[in-house]
Amino acid sequence: MTEQLTAIFGSAIVGSEVQCGDQEVLFVEPAQSREILEWLKDNEEHSYDLLLDVTAVDYGSVPGVQVVYQLWSIIHKKLLRIKCSLPENRLKIRTVVDLWSCANWLEREVFDLFGVDFVGHPDLRRILMPKNYSEGHPLRKTFPLRGKFSREKQTKIALEQDYEDYYRPEQLGALGIEPVNDAD
């Protein structure tokens, strides 16, 4: 398969290896990752139709983030791992939401926890961390376990949070409903 891919995509296929005896891993260039994933999905010989996971790894020793896709072919019963290294100054990769709809939340999670920008994602915003979280992206190695801010500052921010945010007053207003004001 690697030869086949190299013949089509040339230098975008950086390399391949086998992990743990039977797990195929393919390293690809981020610039063409989407085309390669699309080819793997649609090619009948391989048809990796199930996108199991989109995640990322920050090795710490190498600056940057490695985005990891786990693919499974239901017909051919094959597992494949695609890895894509992004340099620290350009944490950007094309989205695959239009290929697999399950990538929507998975990519949002990678954005939330690693700060990777998925170009073309329809709704890229935080998913696990609070909406007003401003300490950065927690799963990066540069992020300390207890957070970047002091406990005091974290508590202050949490208390300053506008509860109306949770009810989207601007949308309530748009629907002609007056937001309830507790101060009255």
Binding site: R125, R126, E170, A174
Partner: peptide, 13 residues
């Protein structure tokens, strides 16, 4: 990167 504070538009709002 700054945290996004985007609110989604209601589809038929």
């Amino acid at each position: 990167m700054m945290p996004t504070k985007k609110t989604i538009e209601l589809s038929r709002g």
